[in-house]
């Protein structure tokens, strides 16, 4: 990146933050429902991008993402509530905790392939939830209530941007390339001397780290967390976003995170029918475009250059 590009990029990012901030806090243009959904959009983008690192880039179907979100949420909530740790530190601590859980869980299970890994990680997600239900210190099934409401647009935005940038950098680093190689052919990459266990665990626990951040943001916005919140359904939600966006496309994951949030809000009146729509979408995408809507074309800026002027011109008005 040139200096100029960095300048343009950061000013655009700042501009987005500023407009939404003003619209929310000063101009009062964004009502409370829209505010909730903006926070959701950030959390969903983080979940989608981080799970994409594991499923899309490294090719490991993990179904326990909600479990790591729970670890981040519970750790950060306990830290701010009972130990008076500042918000940012607490969220990072939650993420680090999720990271270590990722290593602990990843090391044994990532030796398994495909289907077995899916079931094992699904099992771990359930174990995390099952254990939380049994710990009275964190409220058991009733969960923790009365967490300080600190997460706001600014924090969500900062954490979302950091997540996207860091994962983007990781993908383009040598480590990221190793992960992609493993996805494309695990046996071959092993023969090439890539330490597959190391890279799979690295990607997995990094995914866990960011899921932990999402959990921390969640806990400090919705001020109450319960084990049931982080049930299998949440992991599936994240998977739906990754698949819709594109297995192996950060742009796709970001778009899907935003899109699913928007659809959830727009279709709120459909209630339970929303899940039917998502599952049909999931199946259709797999049948007609198994690599996801955006494909795994990570470097798809070119595609967007073509589409953007038209769409931007129309919607911008």
């Amino acid at each position: 990146m040139t200096k100029k590009q960095i300048l343009v990029l950061s000013s655009t990012l700042f501009f987005v933050w500023f407009v939404v901030y003003m619209a929310t806090d000063v101009w009062g243009l964004i009502n409370s429902f829209q505010q909730v959904n903006i926070i959701w959009a950030g959390i969903n983008v983080i979940l989608a991008v981080s799970l994409n690192l594991v499923v899309g880039f490294t090719g490991q179907l993990a179904l326990g993402h909600a479990g790591f979100m729970a670890v981040g949420a519970y750790t950060s909530a306990v830290l701010t509530m009972h130990f008076g740790i500042p918000y940012v530190l607490a969220i990072l601590a939650g993420a680090v905790m999720a990271f270590f859980m990722g290593i602990v869980i990843g090391l044994p299970t990532l030796r398994l392939r495909g289907d077995y890994l899916a079931i094992a990680t699904l099992g771990f997600g359930e174990i995390i939830r099952g254990v939380l239900v049994n710990i009275d210190y964190v409220g058991g099934a009733a969960g923790i209530n009365g967490i300080a409401k600190i997460t706001n647009w600014t924090w969500t935005y900062i954490f979302t941007i950091i997540t996207v940038v860091l994962i983007n950098n990781f993908i383009h680093s040598l480590h990221g390339k190793a992960c992609i190689t493993i996805r494309d052919d695990e046996v071959a990459s092993e023969l090439m001397g890539i330490n597959t266990t190391y890279y799979k665990t690295l990607a997995f626990s990094m995914g866990a780290f960011f899921a932990g951040i999402a959990g921390g943001l969640y806990a400090h916005y919705f001020f109450m967390i319960q084990p049931a919140t982080f049930a299998l359904q949440k992991s599936f939600d994240a998977l739906v976003m990754v698949v819709l966006g594109g297995l192996g496309s950060i742009t796709g994951a970001v778009l899907a995170g935003l899109g699913v949030t928007f659809m959830n809000a727009a279709l709120i009146e459909l209630g339970a029918f929303r899940m039917v729509i998502y599952s049909v979408l999931l199946i259709l995408v797999m049948m007609f475009r198994p690599q996801g809507l955006m494909g795994n074309k990570e470097f798809s800026a070119r595609v967007f250059d073509r589409i953007l002027p038209k769409r931007g011109g129309k919607d911008d008005v």
């Binding site: 179907l61 289907d115 797999m286």
Partner: peptide, 18 residues
């Protein structure tokens, strides 16, 4: 790939449940 079939199977399960 097996990933696609597995995801489809999960989608099918969610569809039938809901």
């Amino acid at each position: 790939g097996r990933l696609s079939v597995l995801i489809t199977a999960i989608g099918m399960s969610l569809l039938l449940q809901n």
